[in-house]
Amino acid sequence: MKSERPDLPLTIARLVRSATPVTPLARPSVRLARWAITSTALALVSVAILGVRSDVAAQMMNGWFVARATATLAIVVAAAIVAFVLSVPGAERSRLVRALPLAACLVWAVLLVGTIAANGSPLEVLLQVTPHPSCVLLIVATALLPGATLVRMLRDAAPLQAAWTAGFAGLASLAVGALGAQFVCSNDAAAHHLLWHFAPVVLLTVASIAVSPSLGRPHRQGPYST
């Protein structure tokens, strides 16, 4: 095939012509704070609509409830931080930061598996768990709006690694959903949480990578686009 000869001067001229003033993007920490406030409000509304469990006040003093809530909150914060950092070119100082949300997930899993193992044979306990697909719907319903907000905010930036960014955005949103679901679902059994809260979050996070191509397209489309 004949080699393409992009006319660079022409491209530069076009880019310069379309160089309208732009508002610099806020720092990842500022954007994280904005998303945290918005998603907290959205999650609270979702939980209120879906129905708060009757013993929520007592559960706030329950160590098991607080431990699970802390683990999911840690995932929310870690995954959202990494997603916002990844959305800005060159802002990621070390790839090791990507391990933070995964470590938080591991803590949640260990917390649940450890509790199951402490109460007998894990396999037997897991086999006795009754299906609760409503918890998956609960998580998704609570995660939907915070997730959409996060995706929009990330698209306003310039994520270069769309799959990673989408994965962490999905994880952050679904962890918000899992946190909210904890205030609705009155089943506190570790096995139930492992199969119907933790596993759906992990599986749906993997599925969220499928939306990564939409993150790659710039949301702020300038007058010059290729």
């Binding site: 393409e4 000869r5 992009p6 660079l8 491209t11 530069i12 880019l15 379309s18 160089a19 732009v22 508002t23 610099p24 993007l25 720092r27 959305s87 800005v88 070119p89 060159g90 802002a91 930036a157 310039a158 710039p218 702020r220 300038g222 010059y224 686009s225 290729t226």
Partner: peptide, 23 residues
């Protein structure tokens, strides 16, 4: 090489609002 240059310039153009002068 010019393809890579051209694509980089266009990507810089689309991402120019993400540059933070403190970095």
């Amino acid at each position: 090489i010019d393809d890579a240059v051209q694509e980089t310039l266009v990507a810089v153009h689309h991402a120019r609002h993400t540059f933070d002068d403190r970095r």
